[in-house]
Design a binder for these strands. Structure first.
Lengths: 146, 146
DNA sequence: AATCAAGTTGAGAATGAGTCACGTTTCATG
DNA sequence: CATGAAACGTGACTCATTCTCAACTTGATT
C-alpha cells in the first residue's frame, strides 16, 4: 500500500531529524495500524499485536501511539468513552464523527460549511486554530423498530 | 439568584417524581455549583466543598454531578483533558467551546449556521440527534509576543 | 566488525479519575 | 415518631494510562 510506505518515510525522517531511533517495534506497530480498522483504541491494538508478535509491551504501544499522533500519522480523539480512540490521519482531509449511542456505530462526515464557520469563529476571537473536533451523538433510526 | 431557585425546584420535583430524596448534600452541592465558576471538574468542586462543609464525600459529589447532568441542570463535557468538566446548563441555549492550548482559556460561542448543518447531517444519515459537542483547540493571539 | 553513548524497551509498579460495596444514617410517609 | 427504602461516607477497587529502571538496541564512529 502506497500510503504505508509514505508513512514509514515520514516516521523515519522525523526520527532522524530528532535524533530518535527507528526501531523494529515502531515499524511493527505502524504496520499493524495499517492492517487494522480505524477508530481503534490502544488496548485493542495491543492485544492484536500481542497475538502476532511477542514481546511488544503495552507501554511501547502507548508510547508509539503518542509519537505517531505527534507526527501527524495518527489522530487521537475522544469518542465519548473513558479511553482514547485513534485513527489514521495521513494525507486525509479533516472529518468529524456521528456516533450512535445505542450501537456504537461511528459515521464519518466532512462539511465545508462547518469548517468555514469554525475558521471565522477563531478569527473573530483572536485565536489561531490548531485542531477541532465535532461529535454528534445520536441514535440510528433503525433502532426504532422495537 | 433566580436561576438557583428554579434549579432547586427542578431538582426537587424530579426527585419527587422518581421517589428519590431531597437531601441536604444534594442541596449543598447544587448551591456550591452556583457559587462556582463554570467549566469546573469534580475534584475541584469536591475540594471546594470539603473546605466549607465537612462530611460530603467524593462519591456523593460524583453521584450528584451525574444526577444533575441527567436532569439537565448540568452539562458534562470533555474539554480535552482526562477528566470530565461540568457547567451549568439550566435555561441556557446550546453553545460550544474554543479552548486555548497554551493558557487553558475557554471561550463559549454559539453558531446557528453550524447548529443547522448538524441537524441536516443527522437527518441525511438517518440518525436522531441526542447531543453534540464541538471543540476548537487553538492558541490565543496574545501569546504571539515571544 | 567492535565500541559506546544515548535512546528504547519490557515488566510491573504507580497514578488518577471515577465507581462500587457495604455498614450506617437520614428522609418522608403513615 | 417508627419504619424501611434511599443516600451517605469510607475505603477498597477498577481501568486507562504513565512512570521507573535495569537491560537491551541502535547507529554513528572507530
Amino acid at each position: 500500500m502506497l500510503d504505508f510506505k509514505a508513512a514509514v518515510n515520514k516516521l523515519r525522517s522525523y526520527l532522524k531529524e530528532n535524533n530518535l531511533r527507528f526501531t523494529t517495534e515502531r515499524l511493527t506497530i505502524l504496520e499493524e495500524i495499517f492492517n487494522y480498522p480505524s477508530h481503534f483504541d490502544a488496548e485493542q491494538l495491543f492485544i492484536h499485536i500481542r497475538n502476532k508478535h511477542d514481546n511488544i509491551s503495552r507501554a511501547t504501544v502507548y508510547r508509539t501511539l503518542d509519537l505517531l499522533s505527534q507526527i501527524g500519522i495518527l489522530k487521537k480523539e475522544n469518542l465519548g468513552h473513558n479511553y482514547a480512540s485513534y485513527e489514521l490521519d495521513f494525507n486525509l482531509p479533516h472529518h468529524d464523527h456521528l456516533i450512535c449511542l445505542e450501537c456504537g456505530k461511528v459515521v464519518e462526515f466532512a462539511d465545508p460549511v462547518i469548517e468555514k464557520r469554525q475558521r471565522e469563529i477563531c478569527e473573530k476571537n483572536g485565536m489561531e486554530m490548531i485542531r477541532h473536533q465535532l461529535q454528534i451523538f445520536g441514535r440510528c433510526r433503525e433502532h426504532d423498530k422495537k
